[in-house]
Amino acid sequence: MDLSIFVILFQDGVVSAAIYALLALAMVLVFTVTRVIFVPIGEFVSFGALSLAALELGRAPGTVWLLLLFGLASGIVTLWSERRVLTARIWLRTLAETVVLPVAVAALVLLLAPHRPSQWLQVLLALAVTVPLGLFLYGAVYRPLAQASVLVLLIVSVALHIALVGLGLIFFGAEGSRTAPLSQVSLTLGDLSLSGQALAVLVVTAVLIAGLYLFFGRTLIGKALQATAVNRLGAQLVGISPLFSGRFAFGLAALIGTAGGILISPLTTIYYDTGFIIGLKGFVAAIIGGLVSYPVAAGAALLVGIIESFASFFASELKEVIVFMIIVPILFVRSRRSLVLEDEE
């Protein structure tokens, strides 16, 4: 292997790593705030990419139907869980959030899609569909299980993932799509040539991470999410409702997942079920960070991306196996270190 191949592999690795890092951060966020291991974040990657691909073809993406569906489900769950204290205000608010909003978004998408709006508008439309979907998933699926154990929440996450993949097949079909690059520029620095899309991935990732950093460090809402992660009861006692934090975390995760999908889809063909594998690699990074540490998760994402890139060169058939096996030594080291008994009550 000569240096130029090394550089190319390294560069590919860093670009995928950026996406994995985003997903890992979203998983850490959702886990620390809600104790949910958000396996379906991979579906947001697929759905984001495939929605954008549909919009590029001048078609309304199938995700609008999902939005309407889960909006309705979330509305029903909300009304049911607040049935004892139902007021006209709650009725109206729930109706506006779970019916009017999705219908409005769907109408907008259906109206605009055939006109092939500009790329930026397409991206915004894709986000407008998937971010509320994240909120509705929380409302319909996880909210009724707020008291459940991490394990039950995990089973639910995996079940939701399976169901969403199936729905993805219905709405997007079995064919894969690749979207147009967000940027056509290409940089050349000696041997190193960087495509516009790769650059876009790195820039957007950096902006998102910086944005998250500022959001958590500077805003009271960001701190409220952090507070929920640090001390759930304490957060409740100062009036931060778990519902509020949960929705916010899921909304952010949906945004990040979709962004990941939009960023990666010009680089690789995305199928209805590709997101899961991409999400899992983010997940491997999050796990290495113990599902609590943002910096370790981001660093681990870099490791995962680069290992994957080199593995695909040397043993392309086993690249997934090699990536997932990274966690074995990590878990082994962790298990040697934490021999303290834990009572799971």
Partner: peptide, 16 residues
Amino acid sequence: ITLRLKGHYLPVATIA
């Protein structure tokens, strides 16, 4: 390797 760890590591590892 994994059973000594806290609850969610094993299920996660089994997925991988």
